[in-house]
Design a protein around this nucleic acid. Structure first.
Length: 162
DNA sequence: GCCAACGTTGGC
DNA sequence: GCCAACGTTGGC
């Protein structure tokens, strides 16, 4: 099982928004970066866990955990001219952009702000904390995942068991 | 294939 | 609003 971090701007789509979706699940559409596309298309599997991360907002940070709920599949918004994510260069016969379904897994007992992540020596080499990191999804090391879960008051072992 | 210009991201 | 960082584009 792999571990991830999903960035989202809460003004656009927040962790609470995800909780209100049917089955608390939503397609992670609109990714238009090849590296992130490859993560979803090639590396993610149902059951993978990830942090939901609020970015570009007054208090960036992690409100909780999500679970990958599908394999990678073509992102239909790329082919929909009415979608803000429409990509005119996409070819229905050869999908360019992919998504996975993302499902709410658990709230943290306590929101873990970015400022607190930065204070932790244990997390110094986390991708999300690196200067200039712009990927909207990043892989997360298991030690980092467990450490952040504990900051949020959640037992990572229970989560991994589902 | 190079690389400058441009657009976007995202913390502050 | 600023600005560093980085991906993408397109001319050559």
């Amino acid at each position: 099982m792999r571990l991830w971090l999903f960035k989202s701007e809460p003004d656009v789509f927040s962790f609470d928004d995800l909780k209100r979706c049917p089955k608390r699940t939503e397609p992670w559409n609109g990714v238009r970066n090849y590296q992130v596309r490859n993560f979803m298309r090639d590396d993610m599997l149902p059951g993978d866990l990830g942090f939901f991360y609020h970015s570009s907002c007054p208090e960036p940070g992690v409100p909780g955990v999500v679970r990958v709920a599908s394999e990678g599949r073509p992102d239909p918004t790329a082919l929909d001219p009415r979608s803000e994510y429409f990509d005119p260069k996409s070819d229905p016969g050869q999908p360019r952009w992919y998504l996975v379904d993302v499902e709410w897994a658990t709230d943290f007992k306590r929101f873990v702000p970015l400022s607190e992540l930065r204070d932790q020596a244990e997390l110094a080499d986390m991708l999300i904390l690196r200067r200039g990191n712009r990927l909207s999804i990043t892989p997360v090391e298991p030690e980092h995942f467990d450490f952040i879960c504990r900051l949020g008051g959640v037992d990572p072992k229970k989560l991994r068991r589902g």
